[in-house]
């Protein structure tokens, strides 16, 4: 069944979109990631204009993150204070990101920037995750359950001013690092159409030293507001949020996430992470090839003035 998307102005198969939403939903349920970093490139592949894909995906992430946050709030695994600090940074970052996005759109380079960001981040994250989980599997075979040494020394971070106490995380640190992490993730969210969880979660654990159990809930809290803000900015400056597209992806995603959670429960954590790492590297490889190989059509048509 073909559906005409009113903003993207293309006609696509509704079941294809539901299927994509479902597939990414299964993966996000299995691995506990938002899935924006997979969905946006997939939307490029099926011919949705990049500007529409990025803006619409931001809207879809609001939905999936909200669903996830409710579960974490009930379990009280959200550090609202830390989340607010990350959020302040995130909003600044999102505003900066949309300005960069619009500037590059007028220059005709927005596709390139979005794709380069994807190749760089997916490549790094995929490779690191792959190495880390390989090591974990190897260690698990050698010594079953050796105590993991926890690094509590955060060096320069403990010397920064404006300290604040974060009860839920059990931390007493400066507010500057969380705000900076927030700004960076905000910029990424606006440019790449992702929530940024795959960058923020490692940053919270390794840079800020937050306990793992509050990390996911706190990052979801921040992601909802940043992506909501990004959606509004894209909707009012670029007119590129396609609500019909968002709803179709959402329906598929919500169902897929429930199935994915069940599959995820039956698999080992290391195996899951290796699969996710491989998946990330495949998407990254496909995007990199598109940049490196000569395209079949060297010319592209765009509207004047980037509208």
């Amino acid at each position: 069944m073909q559906i005409y998307l009113p903003i993207a102005e293309v006609s696509v198969n509704a079941f294809l979109l539901l299927g994509l939403g479902g597939m990414v939903g299964i993966l996000s349920g299995m691995f506990g990631v938002g899935g924006g970093f997979l969905m946006t490139p997939l939307l490029f592949f099926i011919g949705i204009p990049p500007a529409v894909a990025v803006a619409t995906e931001a809207n879809q992430i609001v939905a999936s993150s909200f669903s996830g946050l409710l579960a974490h709030l009930r379990r009280k695994t959200v550090d609202l204070k830390m989340g607010t600090m990350l959020l302040i940074g995130g909003l600044i970052g999102a505003a900066v990101g949309v300005v960069i996005f619009n500037y590059l759109k007028a220059q005709g380079q927005v596709d390139l920037l979005v794709r380069l960001c994807y190749v760089a981040f997916l490549g790094v994250v995929g490779t690191l995750m792959f190495i880390e989980s390989l090591n974990a599997i190897r260690k698990a075979k050698k010594t079953a359950g050796a105590p993991v040494k926890k690094r509590r020394d955060r060096g320069w971070i403990s010397k920064l001013p404006f300290k604040m106490r974060f009860h839920t995380s059990g931390l007493y640190i400066s507010v500057i690092p969380p705000i900076i992490v927030g700004v960076l993730v905000g910029i990424l969210a606006a440019i790449m159409g992702v929530g940024g969880g795959f960058i923020m979660v490692p940053a919270m654990i390794y840079i800020l030293g937050m306990p793992t159990k509050v990390v996911v809930g706190t990052s979801l809290f921040q992601i909802i507001f940043v992506t909501a803000f990004t959606t509004l900015l894209h909707a009012t400056t670029n007119f590129t949020v396609d609500i019909v597209l968002a709803v179709l992806l959402l329906v598929g995603g919500v169902i897929g996430a429930q199935i994915g959670t069940r599959i995820g429960l039956k698999m080992k954590a290391e195996q899951l992470r290796i699969l996710l790492a491989l998946l990330v590297m495949i998407v990254c490889g496909k995007l990199a090839l598109d940049l490196l190989l000569q395209p079949s059509e060297l010319f592209s048509i765009g509207a004047v003035g980037g509208h």
Binding site: N59, Q60, V62, A63, S64, S65, F66, S67, L70, A71, A228, T231, L232, H234, A235, T236, V241, I243, A246, V247, L250, V251, V254, A257, Q258
Partner: peptide, 17 residues
Amino acid sequence: YGLMSLAIAIAAGWLAS
């Protein structure tokens, strides 16, 4: 339009949960 998109997204997220 932007607020409506967000409202729909949040409603859908809540409904799913």
